[in-house]
Amino acid sequence: MTETAASPMPQLGLTLRSLVRADATVLLRSRQALILNFVLPIIVLVVTNRGRFGNPGFLIGMAITYGLLSSALIGYSTTVARDREAGVFQRLRVSPTPTWAIMASRLGVQLATNLAVAVVVMVVGSIIHSTAFTAGDYLLILVVSLLGAAVFLSLGQALVGLVRSATLINAIGRVLYILLILTGILGSTGILGDDFKTFASWTPVGALINLYSAVLNLVPWGSDETTALIACLGYIVVFAGIGIRWFRWDPQ
């Protein structure tokens, strides 16, 4: 301990670097994160693509979408809720770290992981379907994946913003996950009728699957795709708004 009254403010660069390194390590060391992020989309891909009951772009898009959804709604939100409950955030917040940096680091690491998963799923998908995607396809898929990740992370953020208990967040996250996937699947197949299909195309999962299909040139860009884009942007604004506005850092 020294008498120097000047305790210099840490450089923001070092702060962010330290946080990102820690958050990335947490993600890499967590088996749950690995399964939710990588294993699940690959399983979805392999299972759904065996029967070839759809076009590759749609199926690959669906696999990435489910990966994004589970990594945000189950992975991200439960980890944030658990760390908040355990007092991890309290310890971080007594250090001279801006709270936005704590969140930005977590979100940034999530987004980077999601993009890596999207690439892996595309590569595996192109092998299964023995098609080669162009660099342009990859780029478009990454852009849509970024959009999708933002939608689902906002949704996860809204969940941890509105609900305090980690156990409850876990339960709600799972229920939401199943609901969103069901509407996505049932809607896109059209077996529940046109009205439901229209409704589904406005849900986060439905909108995203439409966008994936569109960017892989399976369908020409049309009103469905514009709808999907607007829906996604709307979800991001609304859910991120809720998640940031009502987020509480304290454990109780």
Binding site: P8, Q11, S18, R21, A22, V26, R29, R91
Partner: peptide
């Protein structure tokens, strides 16, 4: 310098990694 009565650290990190993180947060 703060020692909280009840504080916790990320469960996935070793204490060396945690020490590195917190050193970084203090510059």
């Amino acid at each position: 310098g703060v020692q909280l009565q009840a504080s916790s650290f990320q469960a996935e990190l070793t204490i060396e990694q945690l020490a590195r993180l917190h050193a970084g947060l203090y510059g």
